[in-house]
Design a protein around this nucleic acid. Structure first.
Ligand code: FES
Ligand code: FES
Lengths: 154, 154
DNA sequence: ATAATAAAAGATATAGATGTCTTTTATTAT
DNA sequence: ATAATAAAAGACATCTATATCTTTTATTAT
């Protein structure tokens, strides 16, 4: 009678979103002075599977979270405005806004009139998460990344 | 050029865990006076697919979170001790403890020495979630469920 | 113009989470 | 003992997230 189950992921964000956040931090810090950075370097810099990350960045590019140019000396970068956007924009682009608005116990709607048992507690936690993501901008960690006191690699 | 992607789940807990929490609340409140409650009634009471819920309850039963007896008048119930256990035990049994200890950005280890950019913010939020789940017991909502002022159904 | 580069797009593959079905085992009532 | 009941167990199915591969398109340098 076995009973192995492992349990791979289960964090607050999807893996896709984790890679997305790590990559925008990486791109922001690498191209703060105006250059571009290629997919290979990004993938290495954040320990992510390159082809998967490519898909994610394509999506972020379509949604205007990152910019890109093809060809020699091409790569990904972010303009001044994008650098100032809150991290919440990235999360919402990838994982949607269920984390900010959905019921923590999976009820179809989170509402005051038909609340689940944990409604009030969840509302508080959701708000804290949302607030944190709204008050953190993409460029906020450029300096710390340069100093090497924080990490984006597994 | 389509661009539909839907995005089904993405909450804090897995669907399995959502069903698990809703079902322990339901069983606790239904059997507070000593009876038992069958899988059909539980599934209806929390709007979950019955066979899937059966699997989940089997697992919770093996792990000692719920008790059960087979045969006529059988069903699921919880003993006095279990009723007092914190909700965190249920979450940990189903989703593991990654939510409480893992890195929010997906780094292999969450650590002070090699922190991700959001480490301090995440630690704070994780602790709040953990604290909430540790200070909430399975039986805490029996009265409110009897009064019908909170809901477990979609 | 041509060749080289690098991202975009599309098709395909794999694994894990979610959901279902069938058979077996334990318990109870007759 | 037998039949009825209800959960346990095991096998199977499906769908979504995750990951990979190949071809196309845009850009740059020669
Ligand atoms: S109803 Fe569940 S969090 Fe609001
Ligand atoms: S290192 Fe990321 S949360 Fe601690």
């Amino acid at each position: 009678m076995h009973m192995i189950s492992l349990l791979l992921h289960m964090g607050i964000f999807s893996k896709t979103c984790e890679y997305a956040i790590r990559s925008v931090f990486f791109i922001a810090h690498k191209t703060a002075d105006g250059g571009r950075v290629g997919i290979k370097e990004i993938a290495k810099g954040i320990s992510s599977p390159e082809p998967f990350l490519a898909k994610i960045l394509q999506d972020l590019s379509r949604r205007g979270i990152v910019q890109s140019v093809k060809g020699p000396n091409g790569g990904f970068f972010m303009d001044k405005n994008t650098l100032k956007r809150p991290l919440a924009d990235v999360v919402e682009a990838v994982d949607g806004n269920n984390l900010f608005t959905g019921c923590g116990l999976g009820l179809e709607y989170c509402s005051e009139s038909n609340p689940c048992p944990l409604h009030h507690e969840f509302k508080d936690i959701r708000n804290k998460i949302h607030h944190m993501l709204l008050t953190t901008s993409i460029e906020d960690f450029n300096d710390d990344l340069n100093l090497g006191i924080i990490s984006l690699k597994k």
